[in-house]
């Protein structure tokens, strides 16, 4: 498979009336997702915002094909999907470089081509020179950057991110958010980002989908029409955050 330097394919995601039920013992069914519909355009940045345990991650798993939905339709333009999890999920016995090339190993790449790609994406996440480190030698933030490089190395059409910064301290998380925006602008990926942090979703996204709890429904859809890169402390961000917080409180008392 050739590695594309510039993408012509599009990475749009279309989710239509998707529901997901789990079978419980005694034949009951638990509905975790209910009538989820949204669209994310090519090269867009969309956040799915909701409280912990509401089923946000399930939406990503369905799109990645890790799980099956019960009804509805999911259509994706593009075949390659990169996934960044809440924990870095690196293979600790492999070096940073070997971790990054893991998704490439099945694709008949030459060794030097894989190493070149690893170097490229490690450079992009600011980890040039760390190729031969082992994950346990790195801080949590650096490990998560390795995970981001691993997701990017397959040149995905779509990048799915499941609360990737929630396990990090706020200062590290802020730096990584800024880096992510820079990477997004440089690579033009379609990013679908799950978070429970209102400020994070406002800082990052063009579109925010607020999801309610049990079963998860899209409660509200918001577009954030501010130019990138955005600044922490920007009052316009703060206003949107305030409004979103009100929406959230309204949602939980319903």
């Amino acid at each position: 498979m050739a590695h594309r330097s510039s993408r012509t394919a599009v990475g749009a995601i279309k989710v239509i009336n998707v529901a997901k039920e789990h079978a419980l013992p005694r034949g009951e069914r638990l509905r975790v997702l209910d009538d989820i519909s949204f669209e994310a355009g090519d090269r867009s940045f969309t956040s799915i915002l909701g409280p912990s345990g509401c089923g946000k991650s399930t939406i990503l798993n369905l799109i990645a094909g890790l799980d099956q939905h019960s009804s509805g339709q999911i259509s994706i333009d593009g075949t390659r999907i990169g996934f960044v999890f809440q924990q870095p999920r690196l293979l600790n016995w492999r070096t940073v470089e070997q971790n990054v090339i893991l998704p490439l190993e099945q694709q008949k790449y030459e060794k030097h081509a894989m190493r070149a790609l690893a170097a490229k994406y490690l450079g992009l996440v600011g980890l040039a020179g760390y190729e031969n480190y082992y994950p346990l030698q790195l801080s949590g933030g650096m490990q998560q950057r390795v995970a981001i490089a691993r997701a990017l190395v397959i040149d995905p059409d779509i990048l799915l991110m499941d609360e990737p910064f929630s396990g990090l301290d706020e200062i590290t998380a802020r730096k990584l958010r800024q880096q992510l925006i820079r990477i997004w602008q440089e690579t033009g990926k379609t990013i679908l980002f799950v978070t429970h942090s209102i400020s994070e979703s406002v800082f990052l996204s063009q579109q925010i989908l607020i999801v309610s709890v049990k079963p998860a429904r899209i409660f509200k859809r918001i577009t954030v029409d501010l130019a990138y890169p955005r600044e922490y402390g920007d009052l316009r961000l703060f206003e949107i955050e305030t409004q979103l917080t009100k929406d959230f409180l309204g949602m939980s008392t319903e």
């Binding site: 890790l66 924990q87 016995w93 893991l102 099945q106």
Partner: peptide, 27 residues
Amino acid sequence: MQLVSMGQAFRLNRIDIVRKIIFPQLL
């Protein structure tokens, strides 16, 4: 199992998941 689902997300086949993700954990 989180590492296994990582492997699935990156489309590793079953053999590679056993060889590269499960086996090293048992070593």
